[in-house]
Write a protein that binds this DNA or RNA. Structure first.
Length: 564
DNA sequence: GCCGTTTTCGGCCCGACTGTTTTCAGTCG
């Protein structure tokens, strides 16, 4: 992943937020937001020479980015940072609280953080404020509570990209270096990143000097903890080369998995620690993680399965499932282009898909009910024709013309039935009315599942990690229907969605539901997000039989009833 | 601030929902 792009995009997003808070023109705010998105989704690494070719970047923003690439910031950003406390920007992360309210609260009441806001509401200081009635204040308190629960955690996309950045920066100074912890177990929310290295002590100084380090929390020869610009803690540990495998095992966890492993060692009269597996003074295994599992007389347990939920027992019996791997995927069934809210053209997305070696690839732009996307029947048909033309260039890649439908409050979807029947695949997703009562929401999903033209339910819970809670529905009932109607549940790999979440994947599998691990790409770099969806699938013990886009196209077509 | 089968100004994805308003502002997708 191109890091300079991500950092520049973050700076532009921050600038857009601060610019909005300072009362800046809404259209200019949108220009910065648009540019940030385009920069993050730009397929090449950003340089002063190509920055002007990013769509949505004109002379003014190009100048800011160029300065950012050189100095790690730009003047206008520094100015606004000095004027508006970071806490005021944090205020806008409270759901239903936007820039207008945030700046009013700051300027009129001196409220400069979500905590200060909670305090002011509790103290009654905001009673009777114009525009903020009792219902609004209650909502704000609830939003602040949500924010607190997510505090200190980031989604896996942020953590992975930080970890890879650290490893890339330090790998020349280390014999071995890798990430462990919950990140290696592919959890969707990460509290801190654990990195292990076999390296001389001087690596610690190098680590502390990295540009993204904002604070050194603890610094010794064996372990250094820092806080980063993303608000994410990173621990770097130097471990002896001879106990690398034991250390990786120990620091990958989970705690419950390690307890089960140590119990097994004790039963054999041995001892397992982060330094190795020992029989008295004798080292049985230590340098390689795989040797530890082998010596303990069990199958190797892939990190995403290490949750202490029966995997140790299964591995001892030799009954661990052969979980699905990233390399098993032969297609992607949910992607966008710039015809709706994607960044790249159809031709560019398809070319990138072909590079990834897929057997099939579905283009699924939004349908007319998401009015903001301005989709029309005519546009859709023209896209289909363009796709058919492109198909001639890619004999090995089967291009599928699909759509991402909008599931309305009553469970109906957009486009008439005869139009739907002509698509190769239909994803259907909820994009609004997230607060329906549980019964209505359940009926809504069941209606969608029972629609014969709906093949896949996209990002089913619609959660956004740290920003939006999952919708409330009776998933047990929905999955029963989905299994009967052969409606596929999506594992949306976009890391802040990570949707379905693991526990619901397990529940759905229990009912016999099949899954599609899709990227939901809105830009070329997003195609690689499937690795996160595979992490979810592995954590739920899914095999290739559970995941439809590991199947040959003929089997997939037959399953969704589009084989005529 | 960006962009141009509107060529250098005048638009900029549009609509709905919510709570509060008595006609609408703010927020969200």
């Amino acid at each position: 992943m191109p890091r300079a792009n991500d950092e520049a995009a973050a700076a532009l997003r921050e600038y857009a937020d601060l610019f909005a808070l300072s009362g800046g023109d809404a259209f200019r705010v949108r220009s910065y937001q648009k540019a940030a998105k385009a920069v993050a989704g730009f397929a090449q690494d950003l340089t002063p020479d190509n920055v002007r070719t990013v769509p949505g970047v004109g002379d003014a923003i190009a100048k800011k980015i160029t300065q950012f690439l050189k100095d790690g910031s730009f003047r206008q950003l520094d100015d606004l940072r000095a004027k508006i406390p970071d806490g005021v920007r944090q205020l806008t992360r409270v759901p239903t609280l936007g820039p207008k309210t945030a700046i009013m609260l700051f300027e009129t009441y001196g409220i400069d953080s979500p905590d200060a806001l909670a305090e002011a509401i509790a103290a009654g200081r905001l009673a009777g404020v114009k525009g903020l009635g009792p219902k609004s204040l209650t909502k704000l308190l609830k939003g602040i509570e949500q924010l607190r629960q997510n505090a200190g955690k980031v989604h896996i996309g942020v953590a992975m990209s930080m970890a890879e950045q650290v490893i890339a920066a330090l790998s020349d100074s280390a014999d071995r270096i890798d990430y462990a912890g919950s990140l290696r177990r592919m959890k969707d929310r990460i509290g801190d990143v654990d990195i292990l290295a076999v390296a001389p002590p001087s690596i610690m100084a190098e680590f502390r000097a990295q540009s993204y380090v904002t604070e050194v929390i603890a610094g010794g020869d064996a372990k250094t903890s820092v806080m980063t610009t993303e608000g994410l803690q990173i621990d770097l540990r130097v471990v002896p080369a001879e106990s690398w495998g034991a250390a990786m095992q120990y620091f990958t966890g989970s705690k419950e998995h390690n307890v089960a492993l140590r119990e097994r060692a004790v039963k054999k009269g041995w001892r397992l620690s982060e330094y190795g597996l020992f029989d008295g003074e004798d080292v049985l295994a230590a340098a390689e993680e795989k040797d530890i599992y082998a010596k303990l007389g069990m199958q190797y347990v892939p990190p995403p399965l290490r949750e202490g939920i029966g995997e140790v027992e299964a591995a001892v019996r030799g009954e661990l499932p052969l979980v699905v791997e990233l390399s098993d995927l032969v297609g992607d069934l949910h992607t966008h282009t710039d015809l709706t809210d994607g960044l790249a053209s159809l031709a560019d997305m398809v070319a990138a898909a072909a590079d990834r070696g897929y057997a099939y690839y579905a283009v699924t732009d939004h349908a007319p009910d998401l009015a903001m996307q301005r989709m029309t029947l005519d546009k859709m048909l023209r896209q289909r024709e363009e796709l058919r033309q492109l198909q001639r260039r890619y004999p090995k890649l089967r291009l599928l013309h699909g759509t991402e439908l909008n599931i309305g409050p009553d469970g109906s979807v957009d486009w008439p039935g005869d139009v739907l029947a002509d698509f190769d695949v239909c994803v259907a997703s909820v994009h609004s009315h997230f607060d329906q009562p549980r019964e209505e929401m359940t009926r809504r999903f069941i209606t969608a599942c029972e629609n014969p033209n709906v093949d896949i339910i996209g990002h089913p819970t619609t959660r956004k990690i740290g920003r939006r809670e999952p919708v409330d529905a009776d998933w047990d009932a929905i999955f029963q229907v989905a299994a009967r109607t052969k409606t596929i549940m999506e594992i949306d790999s976009y890391p802040d969605r990570s949707d379905l979440p693991v526990d619901l994947v397990r529940l759905a599998k229990h009912h016999g539901v099949k899954f599609s691990v899709d990227s939901d790409s809105h830009a070329i770099p997003h195609l690689a997000y499937q690795r996160f969806g595979i992490g979810i699938a592995q954590r739920a013990w899914l095999t290739v039989d559970d995941v439809v886009n590991t199947w040959p196209l003929t089997r997939l077509r037959e399953f969704i009833g589009r084989d005529h």
